[in-house]
Amino acid sequence: MQQPDGHHLAELNVGRLLAPTDDPRVRDFMQALDLVNGLGKRMPGFVWMMEGSGEPGTGNTENALNGDPQFVANLTVWADVASLERFVWGTIHKKFYDRRTEWFEVLGDQHFVMWWIPEGHVPTLDEAMDRLADLRDNGPSRRAFGWADLPAATEWRKKVCT
């Protein structure tokens, strides 16, 4: 999917923590949230991030899905594919991404989606979940897609992300 003029890239990543947010098994992840999210917000090309309460060490984990406090979502907007890739694969985020199986269940369903939004639009969690459902139900399209559908996603291809 090519980036349309006047559009930014929105992404949603959902996961279910192996334990409640105050459990020692997810402590390293929870303690890194402020660092990683703060870095993301300072990255060139960062546009917007869904926020939680602002309570230190919680990130946006209060945005639980389906009433399950361990099922959390991350929703961000980036200027372009290169900006998101630079953050995901070229910063300390990659170190925590590589450790994700220590803190998150392996989900059988698709749990990551991207889509183009008009500049200035702020996506809602409901909108993002609708895009994720569309990708699960219908496969990649201009409405909802993944890394493999973005020709400009060069870092993802180098990392052979699964």
Rank of each mutant, 00 (worst) to 15 (best):
P4C: 07
D5A: 15
D5I: 05
G6L: 05
H7N: 12
H8Q: 10
A10Q: 05
A10L: 06
E11T: 10
G15W: 04
R16L: 07
L17Q: 05
L17P: 05
L18A: 09
L18V: 15
A19L: 07
A19R: 12
P20S: 09
T21I: 13
D22N: 15
D23S: 14
D23H: 15
P24T: 07
V26P: 09
V26M: 09
V26N: 10
R27P: 01
M30Y: 09
M30T: 08
A32I: 03
L35N: 10
L35A: 13
V36A: 03
V36H: 01
N37D: 15
G38Q: 09
G38M: 09
G38S: 09
L39S: 06
K41V: 02
R42G: 13
R42N: 12
R42W: 00
P44W: 02
P44M: 03
F46E: 01
V47H: 07
V47S: 07
V47A: 08
M50Q: 14
E51A: 15
G52T: 02
G54A: 07
G54T: 04
P56Y: 03
G57C: 03
G57F: 02
G57I: 01
G59M: 01
G59A: 01
G59I: 01
E62W: 01
N63H: 11
N63L: 11
N63M: 07
D68M: 06
P69D: 13
Q70P: 00
F71T: 02
F71E: 05
V72C: 06
V72T: 12
V72A: 01
L75P: 02
V77M: 06
W78L: 06
A79Q: 15
D80F: 03
D80N: 15
A82R: 12
A82C: 00
S83R: 04
S83A: 15
L84D: 02
E85Q: 08
R86P: 00
F87D: 04
V88D: 01
V88F: 13
V88I: 13
W89I: 09
W89M: 12
G90K: 12
K95E: 14
K95L: 10
D98T: 08
R100V: 03
T101I: 04
E102I: 00
W103Q: 03
F104N: 02
E105I: 00
E105D: 12
E105K: 10
V106W: 00
D109M: 08
D109A: 14
Q110H: 04
Q110V: 14
H111M: 08
V113R: 07
V113G: 08
V113W: 07
V113D: 08
W115L: 07
I117Y: 04
I117P: 03
P118V: 03
E119Q: 15
E119C: 08
G120L: 05
D126F: 02
A128L: 05
M129E: 12
D130N: 12
D130S: 14
L132P: 06
L132T: 08
D134N: 11
L135N: 03
D137Q: 14
D137H: 09
D137A: 15
G139Y: 04
G139S: 08
R142K: 11
R142N: 12
R143C: 01
R143G: 11
A144I: 06
F145T: 04
A148I: 03
L150Y: 00
E155A: 14
E155R: 14
E155Q: 15
W156K: 04
V160A: 13
C161A: 11
T162G: 08
